[in-house]
Amino acid sequence: MNFTSPPYLTQNVSVRRIMLQVLAALLPAIGVYLWLLGPIVLVQLAIATATALAAEAVMLKLVDKPLGLFLGDGSAIVTAWLIALAFPPMAPWWLIVVGVAFAIVVAKHLYGGLGQNPFNPAMIAFAVCIVSFPALMSRWPSLNMDASFADHVAVMFGQLPRLDAMNGATPLDTLKTALKLGEGQVSVGAILADTRIFGRMGGHGWEWVAAAYLAGGLWLWQRKVIGWHLPLSFLGGMVALSGALWLWNPAQFASPLFHLFSGGTMLGAFFIVTDPVSGSTTPKGKLIFGFAAGLIAYLIRVFGGYPDGVAFSVLLLNLCVPLIDLYTQPPIFGMKGEK
């Protein structure tokens, strides 16, 4: 049957276009990494991308979906890049492979593929790896070390156990450890005074990465690829709780500014919570989702055992999406006064 259905006109949009724009929005942050760490970040991205495409191709073949259409949609590459950027730079190559493969095979395709995954695949990969390989996932390099590209590669492929400068902690972690060791005697201000680690706002070098995510995110918002609800409410949740505690006891709690520009806050706000598939879809639901994710991320990173909490908070909220959506269905045209 000659089947055509209205509307005959469609906007020039596609899943592929959306995904490509997300990838483009990640470029500033990749640029900052490149500037601070050197080309090793590209190696990490390449490993992730290759693994994602291979895993995607195998899974598509298994479920007998058209390869050209789905491989080209770019969604696997977005997942790969997010994982590569969320993992510590210079993480062992196999850790990236395991993370990406798990994200694509289990978190995405076992749930039905594109559009069907209830959890954010990149965050599933992060959570699985940090639970399985906590030491490796906490081994973050400081961004002001000077080591050659060859050394970087050697670390990544297990030829060198570690570099001296890889003190094994993010600024967030350093702060948490210092506060714990100080047992209430050391103030946050004193700890953060070490600008070699903490930079001006959220960690030497890392604040630039965060700023780059912010820039990319704002561009996505301006292009209407993402809405304002999720990022703003996520940052709002983070600021609300960190701000309240900071005002209450500035000696023991870092300022909201520090939290905004450290760890995965910006990446989370603009690239993780905004994942439409696993997130809430109603305007009100998005605000709840983002705000709660921000709150929980803060709680985990400050009071929990992990260096950062974005992954777990987002996954927790992913679980609540059906409930949130059910109770936040907006009133329809003409029915606003009712019920």
């Binding site: 055509t4 005959y8 899943v15 959306i18 259409l69 594109l114 559009g115 439409p276 997130g279």
Partner: peptide, 16 residues
Amino acid sequence: IFPPPAPEMPCIRCGA
């Protein structure tokens, strides 16, 4: 004028 419909992809719940 009216291109044939592009292949239907899964919904990604973008909310557009």
